[in-house]
């Protein structure tokens, strides 16, 4: 590991100007649970590491029933599932936050960092996609927003340009009779990377027996996390039952284009998309009925 400079930015402007100055040679540090390991093992290199945990906006989590939720990009995972209202309104993200590493990791690691690291297998991204979350990005030319579904452009690559920093993730309000769920498949029960991850969100009708809208995000089955668009649209108007969930699973499988690697063969991963889609839809529906 080679030496690098370290700077703790106090404001967004300071971080942006450092990032603009150092370009690719700078890396942003939030929890560091990916970055420090990557630097140590030579998977990434940095001449400058910019710590953004001292920037207030990045550490802020503000929720209201009417406006929705703004999650600062550096907020550690534990603040999601320990925040009762948030965990209640977005239980699918709490599902993900609870299984990203153990509690030591969750005390440091952030959802924003998980997204920026842009691993195809990241646990938070499928459910961020399912919840229609958007990225608020600051840069030399001001702010812009991008849907999470478009943020990753390849394994380990995101669409932040030179000088840009992810400030927050913004979630639409959680409506009655809607909910989400995230499941990943891992061979063990802990300490593992998703072989496949699926996040599902559903909006039920007033009677709670049919689906009005749905959105399914898939992880670890393509170079970037995916939206299962066809399956999501097909679900609209369908009865909320096991047959429907299984059929949606079949449709979701169609967009999976996984590789075979040390974590599982492609055929198995495609199969798991069907299983996990079915299971997450069932959990999300059950939760939606309880709202």
């Amino acid at each position: 590991m080679k030496d690098f400079e370290y700077s703790a930015a106090a404001t967004i402007d300071e971080a942006v100007s450092l990032l603009a100055r150092w370009g690719d040679r700078a890396k942003v540090l939030t929890g560091g649970t990916d970055l420090i390991v990557q630097l140590r093992e030579g998977q990434r290199e940095a001449d400058m590491v910019i710590d953004v945990k001292k920037i207030p906006q990045l550490m802020e989590s503000s929720y209201s029933r009417e406006k929705g939720w703004r999650l600062g990009a550096a907020v550690p995972c534990h603040r999601i599932y320990e925040h009762a209202e948030v965990a209640d309104a977005y239980p699918g993200l709490a599902d993900a936050a609870r299984i990203i590493g153990g509690w030591q990791i969750q005390s440091r690691a952030s959802i924003g960092g998980n997204l920026c690291n842009a691993s195809p297998a990241a646990d938070s991204i499928p459910i961020l996609i399912a919840y229609h979350a958007t990225c608020r990005i600051a840069g030399p030319n001001g702010e812009r927003t991008v849907p999470v579904a478009q943020f990753c452009v390849g394994p380990g690559r995101n669409q932040l340009a030179r000088g840009e920093i992810l400030v927050s993730l913004d979630f639409p309000p959680s409506l009655p009779r809607s909910s989400g769920a995230y499941l990943r498949f891992i061979p063990r029960n802990e300490m593992d990377i998703a072989v496949v991850g699926v996040g599902s969100w559903v909006q039920l009708n007033a009677r709670g027996d049919a689906i009005e809208a749905a959105r399914i995000g898939l992880g670890a089955v393509a170079p970037t996390p995916l939206v299962a668009e066809q399956a999501s649209l097909w679900l609209c108007g369908k009865p909320a039952n096991d047959d429907t969930f299984a059929q949606a699973g079949e449709l979701a499988r169609l967009v999976a284009r996984p590789i075979s690697d040390k974590r599982g063969p492609a055929e198995y991963r495609t199969h798991l998309v069907g299983v996990l889609t079915k299971r997450t839809l069932a959990i999300a529906t059950k939760r939606a009925r309880e709202t």
Binding site: P187, R188, N189, E190, M191, D192, I193, D261, K262, R263
Partner: peptide, 24 residues
């Protein structure tokens, strides 16, 4: 041990060489 066709071990870490954890 997972090897590729070049004889390289692909999972030389406790993350991907999956020993049981206390939860397993």
């Amino acid at each position: 041990y997972v090897f590729n066709e070049r004889g390289e071990m692909l999972n030389a870490s406790f993350l991907d060489y999956r020993m049981p954890t206390a939860l397993d």
